[in-house]
Design a protein around this nucleic acid. Structure first.
Lengths: 201, 201
DNA sequence: GTCTATATCTTGATAGAC
DNA sequence: GTCTATCAAGATATAGAC
């Protein structure tokens, strides 16, 4: 199977369409014909670029993770303090969520995990690990500088943050309120910003 | 369509199987044949009880929400303080999540919303509203008594809590770590428990 | 690379006998 | 209520011409 960085222009449009459909309807909710209609070519042509659906999904997730990592580097360049970086991080999810409430590719695939090919699950796990690891570093840095509370371990805080963001999109889809990743991160940050902790009686 | 409280014994087993399959694979990930095999009758018999798939799903969500509300009342009886109630609340999700990482029915359907019949989405929205409303009351109570921080509005805190719990199951599915609703709630509570807030310099 | 044609299987759903 | 038989549609996938 080809790496996502060396595929043709048409193949890239196929991946674009596939990513959109996964965000919108999930792996079990779209077909090769849906992809074909978006790209504007026939079904067998999609198979020419990606013989099986799982191969297509795999490339979609790999490219998604790769791009996400690039965005994380940009955030580190652009923002210095942990709270600002975390807000910008939430902005990555918010960006696509604002487009018709599109889910995170791996949020959707994570939910569907039990009915997905194992190689896809593995790749989704990698995405989450990349996220947790990055958050971990940012949070450790923030705690060291006294910008974030130390009442929760960096690992736990990272997991909590990711879970809250992924969940805000899922819940937001099912409701009419304005809940979403940006708002959720903003509120979460309010309680994660370091304060002199003196438990009440 | 019959109300879930007045269906036959067999129909109830169909709903049981359907709920399990939605939690496990999602609406787009199971078929009437899957249900039939679990219940131990043939496909047309399933149609006899629930003519269409969306009707079945609707009853599943309605019963799910009803049972969830009952559990919420039990929590209020059993626990007095807001933090304890919130931990018990997370326990409701943890209970099924421990069984092979089963998702919340509405967490799954919320993710799939864009490819679901509108009446199902409406019912899923109702479930989330029930949750937010209940959390809102508990949190308001906790804040009044000084048990929970007031640095976030009750509404925002309720949404954050629900999002974090739903998300923890989605992310937990895609990873090998022990992330899940109970652990997430525990950590979230650590930063939501009221403290004398004195912002650091 | 793209197409038409086709194979094969699964899906949600119905007809009608018991 | 349950079954066998069947349907029409849609799914993933392949063969082979252009």
């Amino acid at each position: 199977m080809k790496h996502f960085s060396e595929i043709s222009l048409t193949a890239e449009r196929v991946v674009d369409a596939g990513e959109f459909l996964i965000r919108e309807r999930g792996y079990n909710g779209f077909s090769y014909d849906d992809v074909a209609q978006i790209v504007g070519i026939k079904k067998p042509s999609i198979h020419h670029h990606f013989p099986t659906k799982s191969e297509l999904a795999l490339v979609i997730v790999q490219r998604y993770t790769h791009r996400f990592k690039e965005s994380l580097l940009e955030i580190e360049k652009k923002f210095a303090k942990a709270p600002d970086r975390l807000l910008a991080y939430a902005g990555l999810f918010e960006k696509t969520y604002l487009m018709n409430r599109q889910l995170c590719v791996c949020g959707m695939l994570g939910a569907e995990a039990s009915s997905l090919p194992e190689n896809i699950n593995h790749e989704v796990g990698r995405f989450f690990k990349v996220n947790i690891d990055w958050l971990l570093e940012i949070i450790q840095d923030g705690q060291r500088l006294g910008l974030l509370t130390t009442s929760v371990s960096p690992q736990d805080m990272a997991e909590m943050m990711l879970a809250a963001l992924e969940g805000s999109m899922v819940v937001g889809r099912g409701m009419m309120t304005h809940i979403g990743p940006a708002k959720t991160a903003e509120n979460l940050l309010k309680v994660l910003i370091a304060t002199m902790t003196m438990p009440q009686v």
